[in-house]
């Protein structure tokens, strides 16, 4: 633990939106994109920052990197004030904006890395070693000499992540890093991020709409809804909070009666004369082991699987419940 890398207190950012009202009149509305958000991220943690479109995720990232000026509240990143010490901070953090490019569009990919190494004033040996590592793990050797404008999205994203990691930042901020990528590339990028995070102890803040990203990468989840933080905890806690159900699917040796009396569960379905049954339960009511034990005491089991709640459903439930309240 190296102390908090990100400290945010009562952070708020308003935007003024002008809407036409009538022919000439324009109405001025103040919209709070980030509305009193507080959290702190200790060193080495990987935090998934999720929320619907327009929830304020990207705004938060811009506030953290010093690109936007907060309306009120306090932000500290790596112990620095992002707006006033933007350039010092930029040396210590890496940012990937999934929808923008930090690479030189007209130049070969390798050139961008050389320029960035010079911008970050990296000693040639250190830059070389770091680059070799990224090139190898992300399999980029084949297209280092290709101009960035000719790269596929997946190739370019690998380049973007490398560009953000070249100077070994303390904090890596990823704003939708897997947007538009195919499954294989996503997987490769995730395992690379995981490895680099384990090896260097980099703190990672990740926004995404791709929930498997969060499942695979994050130690902790922050959920933002219309500018407010509505959840802060781990995935299990999020699941418990919205009461998402796990489902135990059991295959029995012989057709049997419906297993509708297992404590803490509700029977979802009975198929093939009771040879396959699905029992739903909530983590806080009972454990998978207890349910399995209860089933085996009633019938002979041949096979079982547990279906974990899908994180999409979990988050959707959270949005719905926070909208009701």
């Amino acid at each position: 633990m190296t102390g908090a890398v990100i400290e945010v207190e009562e952070l708020r950012r308003d935007f003024v939106v002008r809407r036409s009202a009538g022919r000439l009149r324009r109405e001025r509305h103040v919209v709070a994109a980030v509305d009193g958000v507080s959290f702190s991220v200790p060193g080495g943690q990987t935090v998934g920052y999720i929320g619907a479109n327009g929830a304020g995720k990207s705004t938060t990232i811009k506030l953290l990197t010093g690109i936007l000026v907060p309306t009120s509240g306090r932000v500290r990143v790596c112990g620095l004030d992002p707006v006033r010490q933007r350039r010092d901070l930029a040396r210590r953090i890496g940012v990937v904006f999934g929808q923008r490019s930090a690479l030189w569009w007209d130049l070969p990919l390798g050139d961008s890395f050389r320029i960035l190494a010079a911008i970050h004033r990296l000693p040639a040996a250190a830059a070389h070693q770091r680059l070799e590592e990224c090139v190898e793990i992300l399999d980029m050797a084949a297209f280092l000499a290709t101009p960035v404008r000719q790269l596929s999205l997946g190739q370019r994203m690998r380049g973007e992540v490398t560009a953000a990691l070249l100077h070994s930042p303390e904090l890596l901020v990823l704003d939708e890093p897997t947007i538009g990528l195919d499954v294989v590339t996503k997987q490769r990028l995730r395992s690379f991020l995981r490895t680099s995070q384990e090896r260097y102890g980099t703190t990672v803040l990740l926004t995404t709409h791709d929930l498997p990203d969060i499942e695979r990468l994050s130690d902790r989840i922050l959920v933002l809804d219309r500018g407010r933080l509505v959840f802060d905890g781990d995935l299990a806690g999020l699941v418990a909070r919205v009461g998402a159900e796990r489902v135990l699917v059991v295959d029995l040796a012989q057709p049997g009666p419906a297993l509708d009396d297992v404590p803490g569960t509700s029977l979802r379905s009975v198929e093939a004369d009771g040879m396959r049954q699905q029992l739903a339960f909530r983590a806080q009511d009972t454990s998978a082991a207890a349910v399995v034990a209860a089933v085996t005491s009633r019938a002979e089991l041949t096979d079982l699987t547990i279906r974990e709640p899908h994180i999409e459903d979990v988050v959707q439930r959270l949005y719905v419940t926070s909208q009701r309240s």
């Binding site: 010092d88 930029a90 940012v95 904006f97 911008i119």
Partner: peptide
Amino acid sequence: DIAIDLARPL
């Protein structure tokens, strides 16, 4: 894309 330029130590 100005955000990219602002996120650099320059």
